[in-house]
Write a protein that binds this DNA or RNA. Sequence first.
DNA 1: TAATAGTACGAACGGTCGTACGATTTCTTT
DNA 2: AAAGAAATCGTACGACCGTTCGTACTATTA
Lengths: 205, 205
Amino acid sequence: MTTDGRLLRGEQTRRLILERALDIASAEGLEGLSIGRLAGDLSLSKSGLFAHFGSKEELQLATVEAAREAFVEQVVKPARSVEPGLARIEALIGNWLDYVERRVFPGGCILYSISAEYDARPGRVRDAVAASLDAWRDYLRHTIREAVSLGELRSDTDPEQLLFELTSYVWQACGTAVLYDDDTFFGRAREAVAVRLQRALPRPA
Amino acid sequence: MTTDGRLLRGEQTRRLILERALDIASAEGLEGLSIGRLAGDLSLSKSGLFAHFGSKEELQLATVEAAREAFVEQVVKPARSVEPGLARIEALIGNWLDYVERRVFPGGCILYSISAEYDARPGRVRDAVAASLDAWRDYLRHTIREAVSLGELRSDTDPEQLLFELTSYVWQACGTAVLYDDDTFFGRAREAVAVRLQRALPRPA
DNA sequence: TAATAGTACGAACGGTCGTACGATTTCTTT
DNA sequence: AAAGAAATCGTACGACCGTTCGTACTATTA
């Protein structure tokens, strides 16, 4: 930041870089994200771009962080205005599905792509991905617990199990919708989520 | 094949190569599978190994095919002896989860890893992955239809939706179990599968 | 205006990638 | 045992990888 509050030029460039990095990473993975290619896409010099991060790994970590921020922006924040409990669960899952279907990033859900890429490769990148997903799962789990406390979900609900099943539907939609280029899977996921939540209601219809 | 029925030497080598390729691809992806590295692991010359496939893409396609064969061997074949219908559905899904949990390949389910890697990259590899998964989904869908025909599942069952939900649980287990190195997710998946099938029974308990 | 810090550049490094080709070894068949 | 086919090797290639370094330009600060 400058003294009068504007962004430094470098910070603007950095944002541009990460914006493009997210597009590439969502489709080609963090490994396909090469510095030369990224620089070429943005008409920057390789070395100039490199200087912003200092290493490939730092660029990857910055990309993961940017992906987390985008996810919060698109999925979590819009649900803040929804009252806690069941309604918020529905909003969060709904936003998540919308965000993937809207193709904010060409490869769908970045965290899905990256987590599958790094799940079996120990290191700082994998740790960062796992931490991001963990935070998201924590928040969902907490929201489920709230709904139980509020009496909006059955008191014998297993939050961890419900969390697993709800995220399953979205995860599967992420994978198949992109692979088959077929958006009907989002409908399948929405249906499954609705039925599953219906079944967790205190007074079954 | 030789005249006396033995395998040609080259064919044996090819199998050895693909065996190792599956290990690497499951953990590092098809892109991380480099010819030099693969040759080094097997104490072969790069050019000698290369000659078996003629191009990197052909090696990748052969690896996808090998993954498909391994999947059929581990998951589909053992369920052939189970009578068609509900029991076979349970066997297929159960075998699938077992096969991933047993860590036949270090990175879990190869088709999961590879499909996430290539879902947004058009080309022959993606097509091959999609075709393999499609065949598997077709078989599962067909088995579900059989169970409905046999009266083992409710007649108003939507096979496509049931298929989506069952595969969701396994898919999610594949992802999270490896990422967090936590096998309890397989239990979550088994529980979800059991409950979902229970709910599809003609006479709900 | 002079000094300073922030940015970006071009050129070059050692390495690895996929690929090509001819020589050579090893197996299979006659 | 000889001939032929099959398999493997060594070497080389151009392209790209991540990284380093010295330099130039451009803002901000003093």
